[in-house]
Amino acid sequence: MSETEIPANLKYSAEDEWARDEEGRVTIGITHYAQDQLGDIVFVELPEVGRALEAGEVFGVIESVKAVSDLYAPVAGEIVAINGDLESQPELVNADCYGSGWMCVIQLADKSELQSLLDAEAYGRHVQERDH
């Protein structure tokens, strides 16, 4: 398996999503580890803009050829943007999961919630534990 990339400047959920906070606007995607486990991504189903999410709520689905996985909201808030490019180019998730493969932007309901997410080091340990 290729070396798992876990950028230090992001926050992570135990369900393998990453989150990047920009003054309450949080961009969400799936981690390098998650896309590697799924294999070639063929479809991403994203919610409508404007939908309110609870933390931990399923907000979408990601599919590879032979596996399917739910996407869980790492934080509560309202969807303010989705990555429309994924509709025609789901492969962006494999190619650049922390960049052009982002999924949606959530306007945070409660800023303190970010503190409950894992940092890069903790997430790295979480990944290692599951691999063994």
Binding site: E63, V65, K66, A67, V68
Partner: peptide, 9 residues
């Protein structure tokens, strides 16, 4: 599009 089906989902 087999991910719709019972053997996966």
């Amino acid at each position: 599009l087999a991910t719709r089906e019972q053997h996966i989902r």
